[in-house]
């Protein structure tokens, strides 16, 4: 057994008086993709944001999350990121008013040469559209930019939140392929609703329900048993296109 790259222990989050997470514990393996699953609104995004220190104002976080030797809950976000924790947020969050090139330039980290080759090899589209304002990109292109800017630096773990949300089937496949390539180098904690994408990428799975971890194990087992899938995620295992 190798040491996990991320260990979340008894993580609780309260926002505006609501207990959203109540003692969530799980680990992320140092290689491959770990999927974080659960029904809509169960707190997957909240979990990722708590780990990177972006809980909304007035939210209270307790518990611990260790990333290597770093306690992420007590370290400012920008330090975590510089320590190699890349975060690709839900809904892309590219800077709409800046150009693609500026969005990428912003993500360069001081003291390390930016790996533009890697990004452009994966997403050639970004090189072509360098001067375009990010707000005018299509949803898929914005997602590529959101992933691409994180890949400019060397990370030791990526947190990726619903990268295929709202994308056309063909683009879902493109994004999934890109993530597959990324996951060969870096471990990924992936939040994803599209079970076909999960089946294709994930080795481990963690399922949240009612503010707690309801199930952990091999992703193939979860998706291989329709009963289990239905009970935990409320859907059949038949995902579309990956």
């Amino acid at each position: 057994m190798t040491e996990p790259i991320l260990k979340v222990d008894d993580l609780s989050v309260r926002i505006a008086g609501l207990h959203i997470l109540q003692g969530v514990s799980f680990t992320v393996a140092p290689t491959g993709v770990t999927a974080l699953l659960g029904r809509n609104g169960v707190g997957k995004t909240t979990t990722l944001r708590a780990i990177v220190g972006l809980t909304p104002r007035g939210g209270e976080v307790s518990g611990s999350a260790s990333f290597g030797t770093v306690d992420t809950l007590r370290t400012p976000t920008h330090r975590l990121v510089r320590a190699g924790l890349g975060y690709v947020p839900e809904d892309r969050c590219v800077f709409a008013g800046l150009t693609v090139a500026e969005n990428l330039r912003l993500a360069e980290r001081p003291g390390a040469a930016p790996a533009y080759d890697r990004v452009f090899a994966l997403f050639p589209e970004l090189a072509k559209r360098a001067k375009q304002r990010a707000g005018t990109l299509s949803g898929g292109q914005q997602q590529m930019l959101a992933i691409g800017r994180v890949l400019l630096a060397d990370n030791t773990l990526l947190l990726v939140d619903e990268p295929t949300k709202g994308l056309a089937p063909k683009v879902v496949t493109e994004v999934a392929e890109a993530l597959e390539a990324v996951a060969e180098e870096v471990p990924v904690l992936l939040v994803e609703q599209n079970l076909a994408v999960v089946r294709r990428l994930a080795r481990d799975a963690v399922v949240l329900a009612a503010g707690k971890v309801a199930w952990t194990g091999a992703a193939s087992r979860l998706l291989g048993e329709p009963e289990l899938t239905k009970a935990l995620l409320g859907v059949g295992s038949a995902g579309v296109h990956a």
């Binding site: 510089r82 800077f95 800046l98 993500a107 800017r149 630096a153």
Partner: peptide, 10 residues
């Protein structure tokens, strides 16, 4: 535009 995302880029 989005202060949080700036910190999330390190």
């Amino acid at each position: 535009e989005n202060r949080e995302m700036v910190t999330a880029l390190g």
